[in-house]
Design a protein around this nucleic acid. Structure first.
Lengths: 206, 206
DNA sequence: CAAAACTAATCAATCGTTTGATTGATTGAA
DNA sequence: TTCAATCAATCAAACGATTGATTAGTTTTG
């Protein structure tokens, strides 16, 4: 029943270690041990340690902007569209916390400019969808006139803040973001907050 | 007139390099070269590379929660207090972008638990001040009943998002966060947004 | 049997740290 | 005033350990 081939077990081990220790802080020997593979298998399959990193990123990037584009085409008002985007985007990120942490950390470094551009391009698609929805809502008078880029920064920033510093939210409670059931609770709580925040902020009070 | 002693020039060089390359990604030889000092001076003054990191963090932590505490005592309503906190907190962070980026990156790692606790403790003071202000505002009926921890996550997250990914905000414009004049513009824009967001969200519409 | 998958051993390079010697200024008794 | 002693500061060189990567050989598989 051991159906995990060495190649993917290396990818999984590397992602886990990169997320908790950083790229530079993780050695190829650690990855190999964690994956239950020989050290040279890393270079055999991926060419180099950086190749492993690139492969992880590439795999994750694929299909990240797929679900969001369909929302834009649906026959809904802009607020409903925005609520759906927040819902899906938040769930996607909280289902891939390790990757999201790793991404944010390594991209704040000035190394790996190629991966930076690659990821920036992939993410800008998502950003533009949200930007278009809000701008459309403003144009139609459905939303107040606001600083759209800053609103997006608030939405994204809130999610990232919860993912990278969950203890600030859960302090005092018994919740632990590493436990799936607790993470589900936290996800719903975050979505509820973000929807309430954006709806209240963007919808003009009569 | 060369008044920069080796000790502080090592600290400055290290902070600059840590901010752009990460702790693990920066070698002691790099630090020494950048500081114009001999490699062994690092261990002579700070004991180890990690000692340099600790010293930088300790220096920055000092006096970070000083300005905020005075606000709480002032004779203002909770909204006015919150506006002042947002104003000062945002300015402080955008005046120390390199440190803030370095802090967030290294603290998202599972290493250096001692520094993690130290910083967490220092920051929790700031968090508690904001939390108390909002809770007080809710109790007095000045604010709507909201998820306080999530509101704080939105405020902090927005600032961090702008600091770590300024290009998402400035894309299309000629602004560059590395240029002091542009950074000032961005700071004011961020403060305006955060004040507008929190005021609109927390103040109940009649 | 040949290609693919895998292993142990080893490579040169770099890491953080330590060593032992040297410098220049300061001190205190002669 | 002089001179030896002492001090922190600085240096080049080297330390052992670890790094990412490669080799050459073995096993597995289709």
């Amino acid at each position: 029943m051991e159906k995990t081939d060495k190649r993917t077990s290396i990818l999984n081990a590397a992602e886990k270690l990169f997320a908790s220790q950083g790229f530079e802080g993780t050695s190829t020997r650690q990855i190999a041990t964690e994956a239950g593979a020989n050290m040279s298998m890393i270079n055999y399959y991926f060419g180099s340690k950086e190749g492993v990193f690139m492969e992880i990123m590439s795999n994750r990037i694929k299909g990240f902007s797929l679900a969001l584009t369909s929302i834009e085409a649906e026959d809904l008002n802009q607020l409903e569209k925005l609520m759906m985007v927040i819902d899906q985007y938040t769930r996607r990120i909280l289902d891939n916390i390790a990757f999201h942490k790793m991404m944010h950390r390594e991209l704040s470094l000035s190394q790996r400019p190629e991966m930076y551009d690659k990821l920036k391009q992939a993410m800008s698609g998502n950003l533009m969808i949200i930007e278009r929805i809000i701008n459309e809502g403003i144009a139609q008078g459905e939303f107040r006139s606001v600083d759209v880029r800053m609103v997006i920064a608030s939405i994204m920033g809130t999610i990232t803040n919860v993912v990278t510093s969950p203890s600030k939210i859960t302090a005092g409670s018994k919740l632990d973001i590493k436990i799936p059931a607790d993470r589900e609770i936290l996800t719903e709580r975050l979505i509820t907050h973000l929807k309430d925040l954006t709806k209240t902020y963007l919808t003009p009070q009569k």
